[in-house]
Computed example of a mutant assay.
Amino acid sequence: MSDDEKAPAKTPTRPIRVPIPMWDAYGRVCSRLGTDRTADLLNRMREQIKTHGDEQDLADLAAAEQELAERRSRKGGRPPRS
Rank of each mutant, 00 (worst) to 15 (best):
M1N: 06
D3V: 02
D4C: 04
E5S: 11
E5Y: 03
K6N: 07
K6T: 11
P8W: 05
P8R: 07
P8G: 07
P8T: 04
A9L: 11
A9Q: 12
T11P: 00
T11M: 12
P12K: 06
T13G: 13
R14T: 15
R14P: 01
R17E: 11
V18R: 06
V18S: 04
P19T: 04
P19Q: 14
I20T: 13
I20D: 15
D24Q: 15
D24A: 13
A25N: 07
A25D: 09
R28C: 03
R28T: 10
V29E: 09
V29K: 09
C30R: 03
C30H: 02
C30K: 02
L33W: 06
L33M: 13
G34H: 02
T35N: 01
D36E: 10
D36W: 05
D36C: 13
R37I: 09
R37G: 05
R37Q: 15
R37F: 03
T38W: 07
A39C: 07
A39N: 10
A39L: 09
D40G: 03
L41D: 02
L42R: 14
R44I: 06
R44V: 04
M45Y: 07
E47Q: 12
E47A: 14
E47S: 11
Q48E: 13
K50E: 15
K50M: 14
T51I: 03
H52A: 09
H52Y: 12
H52K: 10
H52N: 14
H52F: 12
G53L: 00
G53V: 00
D54W: 05
D54T: 08
D54K: 09
E55I: 05
E55G: 03
Q56W: 04
Q56K: 13
D57M: 09
D57G: 05
D57P: 01
L58N: 08
L58S: 07
L58H: 07
D60T: 06
L61D: 00
A62N: 06
A63R: 13
A63K: 13
A64G: 08
E65F: 00
E65A: 02
E65S: 01
Q66L: 14
Q66H: 09
Q66P: 02
Q66Y: 06
E67M: 04
L68T: 03
A69E: 06
E70V: 04
E70L: 12
R71C: 02
R72G: 02
S73A: 15
S73L: 06
S73H: 06
S73P: 00
S73V: 03
K75V: 02
R78Y: 07
P79Y: 04
P79H: 05
P80I: 01
S82V: 03
S82P: 11
S82F: 03
